[in-house]
Design a protein around this nucleic acid. Structure first.
Lengths: 349, 349
DNA sequence: ATGAAAGCGCTAACAC
DNA sequence: GTGTTAGCGCTTTCAT
């Protein structure tokens, strides 16, 4: 009987009105109560008598009612929506942070609105404006370099904002990351102390990668290393471009004994492959330092020496910071949280 | 004067009211027009006189007004929100489809609400319900196997739904993908015709991968190949687990001359690395077929033979299908679109 | 425990 | 070209 009743519902017809049309008022009518009571039953069942609750639940089941969160958000000024901006979701480095972030936010009842900025500030401006119109309760930003306009919009929005993957003296609100300059310098120290006196860099078109590169070069020179060979790659880091860059280096002829500081493990793996294909020994003839310590880094041959960053922690700490800001007690979060990094020594350097 | 005026705005104070409090009515007051005129100026400037438009724009600039899309959506029953569900965003295979999809949707003014299902049907149910309450104008689903409850909710919602990465006789609405059974069988044909008579599979815990595996085995046997060695990996496909699986195969001793059909290029790369580390020749002693033809597949040593699927096309075709359904003329889209696949022969098999 | 009224900030008719 | 009047479907506040 129950199933046959629900089978007859008009909502089974997808091009027809559908459950989108059922409102709390309708449920109330079916359950013999007012619309507010339905609202209460859903937001805090303890405020409603057991029998009423039963009838309401039954009516919801029968109609396939789905509450309209848009209306709820408008009335309560709480959207339960979080906007998240990443340079690119196809880059594991960012998507893993996003994953960790959204898992936690989801657990607290928040939905994620995602947008990619593609490393472009203009794009970020458009996207931030569009997202803010959706009245998110909070926002996740990647990086700390934003246009004045973006900063203004965000400050004006009056919502918690977390910037990840970098640190700065002037966060918009909360900021969780590490110093890319420090990472580059640490890599240079590591290289120098491992005995290398010649070095090269392979860097993708990413602001943060460029800061690591610059810090690496400056520190390496400062400690007395030879002048560093700089290879900049236009797009993003791939195994392919890594191989090409490696080839460039190898063909220069003067790369023997160099250590190559890569802006990502993809590049580093490319060097490994190209070196193996050309019979160049790693690390004996060419040493490699990756960045990101991606999942595969420990399993290449030789295993990659890489700069490890806890990408998941970046995401989960960002989520925790937001959640914390939502509490009335909020504000307790430190404005800047440096999670640091670690150089993981393996076989490649 | 202009800048000093805006500098004094309360919206510059982030913990204060912020721009979130400015409404169209406020803008109207400042510009000396009614609220509706402001609404018109924003949605269709041609409906408003040039001078009025100017004053409205100025007022918006001064206040940092950001329209409330929540209210707009409620009033117009058009949210400009699209819900997208993927098993995992850290898997490039899915994130690239999502990327292509969201680029196009963004170009048409739609925002993406993202959720991960982690290959779990229960999880998908929760997530679909939560997302539907946000009244998205359309939804992207990965895969075609959904619980009855999900199908019911979606049919009831009366919005366009695109299922990607698979095909089925019974799509919820529109479906764009390819037959995994056909892909597995094609790989078996390829292997057999390449002369291999022994085979193995390495498969991650993914429904679609399992269907490819089963079809591979059944076709390989059917054509007279030896019984296929099946290695199933619990989690997702990584270089690490690929190496481990390869080791398992190699240590069995009877793998010489086998071809291994992998559920992803990550696995395939793992086999390559492990084989090289153990001095096992590829493809002479062990041949490898990957799946996905990821960016790196062409640049490993040897380059990977893999089943190529146009992941971007999957995303962009899905977006086009939705956009098309939104047009009054809509419905013209074919319910099922099989984009096929292609076996790319390289060095590994 | 439940209801009535007001209103969130917009868009959609319909006037003029 | 612009204003007025009604809602959209909820939550909030105040009664009862």
């Amino acid at each position: 009987m129950t199933s046959s009743a629900s089978d007859r519902l008009p909502s089974a017809d997808r091009q027809a009105s559908g459950s989108g049309r059922v409102t709390m008022a309708d449920i109330g009518r079916l359950a013999g109560v007012s619309q507010v009571t339905v609202s209460r039953a859903l937001s805090d069942p303890s405020k409603v008598s057991a029998e009423t609750l039963q009838r309401i639940k039954e009516a919801i089941r029968l109609t396939g009612f789905v509450p309209n969160a848009l209306a709820g958000a408008l009335a309560s000024s709480k959207s339960n929506l979080i906007a998240a901006l990443v340079p690119s979701i196809t880059n594991v480095v960012y998507s893993s942070t996003l994953h960790a972030f959204s898992e936690i936010m989801r657990g607290h009842g928040y939905q994620i609105m995602l947008s990619e900025t593609g490393h472009s500030q203009e794009r970020e401006e458009e996207v931030v404006a569009a997202l803010l119109s959706r009245r998110p309760d909070g926002m996740l930003l990647t990086g700390v370099h934003h246009s004045p306009s973006v900063r203004r919009m965000l400050m004006g929005a009056g919502i918690p904002v977390v910037e990840v993957w970098d640190v700065t003296e002037t966060p918009i609100d909360v900021c969780i990351g590490f110093s890319h300059a420090a990472a580059g310098a640490a890599a240079a120290d590591f290289a120098f102390e491992s005995g290398y006196r010649r070095a090269a860099t392979i860097t993708a078109a990413d602001q943060r990668a460029e800061r690591r590169r610059d810090a690496f070069i400056s520190r390496f020179n400062q400690r007395g290393g030879e002048s560093v060979v700089k290879v900049d790659v236009a797009g993003s880091a791939t195994l392919k471009t890594g191989r090409e860059a490696a080839l460039q280096l190898i063909e220069r002829g003067d790369s023997r004994g160099s250590v190559v500081f890569c802006s990502s493990d993809q590049f580093a793996q490319g060097i490994l492959v190209e070196a193996k294909a050309r019979g160049v020994g790693v690390p004996s003839e060419l040493a490699v330092i990756g960045f990101g310590d991606q999942e595969f880094a420990a399993y290449t041959e030789p295993a990659l020496t890489s700069v490890r960053v806890d990408r998941d922690l970046l995401g989960s700490a960002a989520a925790d910071a937001l959640i914390n800001r939502f509490k009335p007690s909020g504000q307790a979060t430190a404005p800047v949280h440096d999670i640091g990094f670690e150089i993981v020594k393996r076989g490649s350097a």
